[in-house]
Design a protein around this nucleic acid. Structure first.
Lengths: 247, 247
DNA sequence: TTATGAATTTGATGCAGCGCAAACGGGCGG
DNA sequence: CCGCCCGTTTGCGCTGCATCAAATTCATAA
């Protein structure tokens, strides 16, 4: 994990597809590389957006906070992805916090540099449109899901997405590659940590997942998918999610 | 409302800021203008995205449909705004339907033309980044709101946003400039038309809004804001929203 | 080892808002 | 002018989930 990252890492990033070696040097020449420790706040909601970032290694979570302190995890960033780019194009402050959930290595550019870069290399702007477009589509889908679907299904979907995005195969299943608390899952799915805890515990009893502190391992992704998609042949565990025998 | 729209209309669009007169002619030369009647489906979710649009006049709603038919209104498009642009940059099909909610005049470009245009005029790509970025921020805010906030407040916010976006001053208040059913409001706020109807009726009794068929007029925006922001000094009408005297 | 605190589990209870069902009303075609 | 239809209102029962409260487990520092 050298502080001068392999240029090939940058060359692979979606944002810089279609650039020549010369242009890549141009890009890298204007960048700054930095290590950040787990737990570090990289930028805060409302800060003037003067810098945009790419993640080389580690995981970063993007968290939005409401007027009364309610938080929502907007996105998890993995290696090769950009973050903090939004506000750079729209002006104004960052719309959310960014926090390193593991030790990370990041590259950053000043907003001005990035804008220049895009004027010099239109393909970078178009690549970014592509990325931002996908992200917008994702968020819109999530918006529909969160309005129309039950909590259990939302949690199932969230786990499946996390596995896809950050799954690490382990003995007897797939784990999620960074610390993920029940509270985190709640802030992804728009529910409370209590409900998440109950739901996951019920799933653990059914052998679908295995739980640990800030850790979830998926043992039976098919059943999870069945829950997420409401496929027939898999009885929902709704009843047992509630207080057990109470009711 | 001529079928050959005033070039100055295009010149004013956010997307084409910073273009010279020559370039604007380039842009317009590749565009196609069309009238569409109220109710027309302009494109459908899943259709291959070969065209992107700008609205000259009228209103268009963008609606996403889930696997089981649940719908969510993602956005209302007004004059001067682009739509159907997302999928053009990301490839694949449109992520939602577009439907004219009033008689409209639209301009359209083929996806290929628009991409060329952006390569020729990087500023257009960067403008689009700006627009898309703003939209993404909006959707993210809405996502947090819908996860953490009560229905009544979501409805209040939705109305205020509609007023801002499409308000028309009328005798004794501000009306919304296009037909808007209770079902529509439900699909914006992620609730049911029943709950919307109850909430709005309660507000009408308090003199906050005035209701009609596919029509809402805001009489007391301050109280509405108070509800949306949970300001002190305005008792919520929560109790009366439910079955009236029942309970 | 023990103390301290964070993350998690679990219970009990209440209620917001959903689902169903039925009635209402006004505009439009005939 | 009448009858139909769509958008809307309203009532009622029910339940999914939030909320409040407290116990329990585990990790780290002392």
């Amino acid at each position: 994990m050298p502080l001068t990252p392999d240029p090939s890492v940058i060359a692979k990033m979606a944002m810089f597809q279609g650039l020549e070696a010369d242009d890549l040097r141009d890009v890298m020449g204007n960048a700054r590389t930095r290590r950040v420790a787990q737990g570090t706040r990289i930028f805060s909601q409302g800060d003037p957006a003067e810098t945009c970032y790419a993640l080389i290694d580690g995981r970063v979570k993007i968290v939005q906070t409401g007027a009364e302190g309610e938080q929502m995890i907007v996105h998890f960033i993995g290696p090769g992805e950009m973050f903090g780019t939004l506000a750079v194009f729209t002006g104004g402050g960052y719309p959310a916090d960014a926090e390193a959930v593991t030790d990370c290595v990041e590259i950053s550019w000043s907003a001005a540099t990035m804008t220049e870069l895009m004027h010099r290399h239109p393909v970078v702007a178009i690549n970014t449109l592509n990325i931002l477009g996908r992200r917008l589509m994702q968020v819109q889908r999530r918006l529909r899901e969160i309005s129309n679907e039950r909590v259990e299904r939302r949690i199932a979907r969230a786990l499946l997405r996390l596995v896809e995005h950050a799954g690490r195969p382990v003995d007897g299943g797939t784990a999620i590659d960074f610390p993920l608390s029940r509270q985190d899952v709640a802030e992804i799915t728009g529910t409370t940590l209590h409900t998440v805890s109950r739901t996951l515990s019920a799933w653990e009893e059914r052998g679908i997942v295995e739980l640990g502190r800030q850790k979830v391992t998926i043992r039976d992704p098919d059943t999870l998918t069945a829950i997420a998609e409401d496929l027939p042949g898999q009885a929902p565990a709704t009843a047992s999610v509630r207080g057990g025998s109470g009711g």
